[in-house]
Each structure stands twice: as structure tokens, then as C-alpha cells.
Design a protein around this nucleic acid. Structure first.
Length: 609
DNA sequence: AAAAAAG
């Protein structure tokens, strides 16, 4: 085997101690030797001045801030102004003392959280499955990818946590995204969830905060808190998950991570915030609430990360996101650093998203080939009335094969909340322990259901799209699309709950006449993923006029390694050679491409209406 | 038309 990361890290540390680091690599400076944040041009520090905050909020806020720092907006200055900044940053006596004294070891839970699984899983990612994945980066002066964590100067404490997480080498998205964000660049990244996306945006944020953070002490009596980083996600459970991961990454770094989401008592969240917050992970609704109560100010935000960014910017969420990002007191693009992540990035959404970004780099880590092969996709024609008995057949077969129980979870997606309850009830009646998660359940019920599923207590989970995105549930062996979604991107996210971290998975879809609109996109998708496409579905595909679902918005059918919309004439008509030349990187999703070049032509535009 | 997200 190759040299482990730990060895490399140890060597690297020794090199640093001997002062023999090659000049090309910035030397790691231990905390006690640092005396000021590296605010030089190429540093990780936020870009310089230009921004004077919104006048309305800044008066009161500046007053509050000046209690903590001698000058409220020094953070955006090129030169450190106050000597107050030089004392104690990175110093263990600074920062959130009160909180850190009681910092719970997030790695302690690891071992008892899933005691039923004997298999080692947290080392998780099967890297061989990620070799030779096509990667596309576009934008100006793209920083080079790295091959090891040791090549990146993330700092001792963070490196130690990486080791604790048993991460040996960076995943493809991490290899590319981390250098980009360490260079201070904005980023739009398409990468499969479960391929290490969370770490890809957390590491640079934590590292940047450790470097740049002056002593922050919440003055007594001031209730407004000023996080330095904001991570938004579309569901509460995903926010919880990101929070848990981020806590591991930031353990003993002095960087505090707090989560805030709806459905849970706000008081505990307020107390957590008051103890200090550097990174705030939140769902949009609760955050707006906190902003309106003036318990949180975004004025000091240096890093903004949107997970499942395409969902965050779709019709349901966009107004809230715009409010948070553009209409409160958050620094504008170019002042803050913005990172958008998702497995899918429809071009319409890319266009919207570009409002939030400044001179960004587009990164696509293709899922074509090896890693998509990990999910065995099947489509079966099942009439609406036959779905239950068909599901029953599948479950019986699984049970017979021993493919059921604690190590082989089954996730069943349905279209509606009522349908979820009904199916859960019916499964339980028929001797299959099931639970359900959807938006009509209380947050307690949702969390309990997820926990019960994860533990294998209830090895079947019936879910609406609330569980479609981002959730990392080990041991999901089978995803059943009991009801297919209308949008091919949702399908991609749903089946992505299995075959995670380089493991194999199975996805079965029940298709009938109600899903004709999805036929084309589904057939194309399966074909590109080297799946066997049933002949009958091609017949449906021929009958459906367009690419199906929202696929027409996906930029020429590049679902996975989506393409940078800036490279496609936004309103190009007719044949787009640009599109066809792109096959070398994202992986040539071309079978629906006849419509891609003609995007904006009358035929496709009318499909919008 | 449905789902999610504030209470």
C-alpha cells in the first residue's frame, strides 16, 4: 500500500520543524509563533475593503462589534489596523473559552452511535471507485488540485481531526475544491453527495477562521451574535448532519459550530448561539427568524456555503435565500467568499446562482462511469394498483436472500405525505417493520424515525423528498422509487442515498403511465450510467416530447458532471458545437442533446409553460 | 400538484 496520510503528515510536520520545506509551499506556522493573520493578497483572508455595510444596520451593529474589537470592519482591511488583533489569535486562551472548556468530544459518540454494526464503516469511502473520475474546472486561474491532505496547509488541529475521521486521502471533490477555496475563490461545485462534499467546504472555512480570527469575546448583555461563516441547507435533518460533521472537523480548533433549524425549541439554539458561534449551520426559515429577532447578524460573514444549492435556489426557496443573502446585512459577493455545492445544477439555477458569486470557478466532478456503476438501477412497469403487492414481492425476496435487516436498509420514496403514512401503516400491518419521515410529522418524530432507520431497528423507511437529498445513511442497500419524481434531478438525488462512499447499491423504480414525462430523461440517465435500459421504456421515451422532468433545464442533459452555463451561449440557438465538444470532461450526456443547443428556441421554451 | 421551510 501507499504511504498513509498519517505518515505523510508526520513527515510534513518534521519537515516544517526542520525548516526544510520547499519554498513553493507555504510553511506551516504553529499557533504560538503566529502574530498576525496572513492578510496578503494570495492569502485565505477575505478580500479587502470596498464594502461599507448597509447603513441602516451598521450603526447599532458597529456599536455592538466595537465592544469586541477595536474597529468593527477591520476584517475587510488589507492591513491589520489594530494591535488588538495580534494578540492571541490562534491562541488557546482566546476565542470561545467558556464553550471549549465543555466541548464534547464528537468522536466519542462515533463508537456507540451505531453499536449494532460490526462492520467498520466510518473509514467508508472506497477510493478505488473514485479513480479516474472526469473532472472539469472552468473559470480564471484555477488553482491546481492536490493529491494528499499533507500538501495542504490546513493547520495542526484540523489535520488531527482529519486523522481522527480516518480520512486518508482527499476525495476528487476535495482534491479540487479545497485548493480553490483556500485561494479565496468563489466556487460552484457539482459533485455527488457522499463523496466528501461537506468536508470540502468545511475544511477551508475552519482553516480560514483559525487563521484570521481575532479574539472574539461576546460582551455580556449583547444578544446579537456575528458568525463568520454561514452554511445553509434545505432540510433540518441535513443541517443536523452537516453540524455533526463540522463539529468533528472543528474539534479543539477553537472554532465553534452551532446549528439552528425549525421544529425544535428555539431557546436551546439561542443559548448555543450566545455561547459563541463562528460557523452557523441553518435552515432558511429559522435563520430568517433569528435575523428578524436580531439575535444573529450576518455582517461579519466571510464564508457562505449553500449545500444542495440548486434546491436552495429553486422556486420554493429562492425568495428566502435572496432575503438572507441579499437583503439583510451580509457582505456582498467579492467581499465574502461563496461556495455552492450540489450533485445537480440545472443551468437556470446556475444563472440565478451567479448573482451570489464573484469571478467564480465552476467545478464538476463527473459521476459518469465508475461511481455511477455502483448503483444498479432497475425500472419496472408497475400499475398504480399493483405497487403495494409489487413492493411486497421485493421485500419478501430480499428477506429470503437475507438482504434485509440491520445491515441492509431499504428506503422507499413516495410522492405525498399522506401516501407515506398509508404505506408505512400497510407495511407494518404486513409484518415489515417500517417507519416514515415527511414534513407533516413533528421534528421529534422525524428525528426518531431517522434514528430508528439508521440503527436498523426499523429497516424500512418510507419517505417523501425530505429525505431525497444529502442525508448520509450508511447501509442503505436498496432505494425504491415507489412513486417516481417528476424531476430527473430528484431521481438522481434519491438514488444517491444508496451506493454511497464507494459501496454498491440497488435502486428500483416503479414506472407507469403517470411517469411518461420522465421516460426520456430516465432512459438517457440509465444509459449514460451503463445501466440496462428496458426496451419498453424507450417506447415511452419516444412518446414524450421533451427531455422530461426538469431535465431540459439541466444544460443539455449533463446531470452529473453538469456543465458551466457560462460556457454555453446562454441563449444560443441552433446547433451548439460547444455543447458537443464537451464530451471529454463531463462525460457526454448527449442523447437528449438535440434540445440542448436549441435551448431558448420556441420548442423548448414552450415546454416551460 | 407536491414537497420543503417559521410558529
Amino acid at each position: 500500500m501507499r504511504t498513509s496520510w498519517a505518515d505523510l503528515a508526520a513527515n510534513s510536520a518534521a519537515d516544517n520543524a526542520n525548516n526544510s520545506v520547499p519554498p513553493s509551499k507555504p510553511a506551516y506556522v504553529p499557533p504560538h509563533l503566529r502574530n498576525r493573520p496572513p492578510l496578503s493578497a494570495e492569502s485565505h483572508a477575505p478580500p479587502p475593503p470596498a464594502y461599507s455595510g448597509p447603513s441602516s444596520a451598521s450603526a447599532s451593529v458597529a456599536g455592538a462589534v466595537s465592544g469586541r474589537w477595536s474597529s468593527p470592519r477591520n476584517e475587510y482591511r488589507t492591513q491589520p489596523v489594530s494591535s488588538g488583533h495580534t494578540s492571541g489569535w490562534g491562541n488557546n486562551s482566546g476565542g470561545w473559552d467558556r464553550g471549549r472548556d465543555r466541548e464534547v468530544n464528537p468522536f466519542a459518540e462515533q463508537d456507540d452511535s451505531e453499536p449494532t454494526f460490526t462492520e467498520q464503516e466510518n473509514t467508508g469511502i472506497n477510493f478505488d471507485a473514485y479513480e479516474d473520475i472526469p473532472v472539469e474546472t472552468t473559470g480564471e486561474n484555477v488553482p491546481s488540485p492536490v493529491n494528499t491532505f499533507a500538501e495542504i496547509d490546513l493547520g495542526e488541529a484540523l489535520n488531527e481531526n482529519i486523522r481522527r475521521c480516518k480520512y486518508v486521502r482527499p476525495t476528487p471533490v476535495q482534491r479540487n475544491a479545497i485548493p480553490i477555496s483556500l485561494a479565496g475563490r468563489d466556487l460552484m461545485a457539482c459533485a455527488q453527495t457522499g463523496s466528501g462534499k461537506t468536508a470540502a467546504f468545511c475544511f477551508p472555512i475552519i482553516s480560514g477562521i483559525m487563521r484570521g480570527q481575532p479574539v472574539q469575546r461576546q460582551p455580556r448583555g449583547v444578544r446579537t451574535v456575528f458568525p463568520l461563516a454561514l452554511v445553509l441547507s434545505p432540510t433540518r435533518e441535513l443541517s443536523m448532519q452537516i453540524h455533526e460533521e463540522a463539529r468533528k472537523f472543528s474539534y479543539q480548533t477553537g472554532v465553534r459550530v452551532v446549528v439552528a433549524y425549525g421544529g425544535a425549541p428555539i431557546n436551546q439554539q439561542l443559548r448555543d448561539l450566545e455561547r459563541g458561534v463562528d460557523i452557523l449551520v441553518a435552515t432558511p426559515g429559522r435563520l430568517v427568524d433569528l435575523l428578524e429577532r436580531a439575535r444573529v447578524s450576518l455582517q461579519m460573514i466571510r464564508y457562505l456555503a449553500l449545500d444542495e444549492a440548486d434546491r436552495m435556489l429553486d422556486m420554493g426557496f429562492e425568495p428566502q435565500i435572496r432575503k438572507i443573502v441579499q437583503q439583510m446585512d451580509m457582505p456582498p459577493p467579492g467581499v465574502r467568499q461563496t461556495m455552492l455545492f450540489s450533485a445537480t445544477f440545472p443551468r437556470e439555477i446556475q444563472r440565478l446562482a451567479s448573482d451570489f458569486l464573484s469571478n467564480y470557478i465552476f467545478l464538476a466532478v463527473g459521476r459518469v462511469g465508475s461511481s455511477t456503476d455502483l448503483i444498479d438501477q432497475r425500472v419496472e412497469y408497475v400499475q398504480e394498483s399493483d405497487k403495494r403487492s409489487h413492493l411486497m414481492d421485493l421485500l419478501h425476496a430480499q428477506r429470503a436472500n437475507g438482504v434485509q435487516g440491520k445491515q441492509a436498509l431499504t428506503l422507499v420514496f413516495v410522492e405525498t405525505k399522506k401516501g407515506a403514512d398509508a404505506l408505512e401503516h400497510w407495511l407494518c400491518l404486513n409484518g415489515f417493520p417500517a417507519t416514515t419521515i415527511h414534513g407533516d410529522r413533528t421534528q421529534q418524530e422525524r428525528e426518531f424515525a431517522l434514528k430508528s432507520f439508521k440503527s436498523g431497528n426499523t429497516p424500512i423507511l418510507v419517505a417523501t423528498d425530505v429525505a431525497a437529498r444529502g442525508l448520509d445513511i450508511p447501509h442503505v442497500a436498496h432505494v425504491v422509487n415507489f412513486d417516481l419524481p417528476n424531476d430527473i434531478d430528484d431521481y438522481v438525488h434519491r438514488i444517491g442515498r444508496t451506493g454511497r462512499a464507494g459501496k454498491k447499491g440497488l435502486a428500483t423504480a416503479f414506472f407507469n403511465d403517470n411517469n411518461v414525462n420522465l421516460a426520456r430523461a430516465l432512459a438517457d440517465l440509465m444509459q449514460e450510467a451503463n445501466q440496462e435500459v428496458p426496451a419498453w421504456i424507450l417506447g415511452y421515451a419516444a412518446r414524450s416530447s421533451f427531455c422530461g422532468g426538469r431535465n431540459r433545464r439541466s444544460g443539455g442533459g449533463s446531470r452529473f458532471g453538469s456543465r458551466d452555463f457560462r460556457r454555453e451561449g446562454s441563449f444560443s440557438r441552433g446547433g451548439s458545437s460547444d455543447y458537443h465538444n464537451a464530451g471529454n470532461n463531463g462525460g457526454g450526456y448527449g442523447s437528449c442533446g438535440g434540445y440542448a443547443g436549441g435551448y431558448g428556441s420556441s420548442g423548448v421554451t414552450s415546454a416551460w409553460d
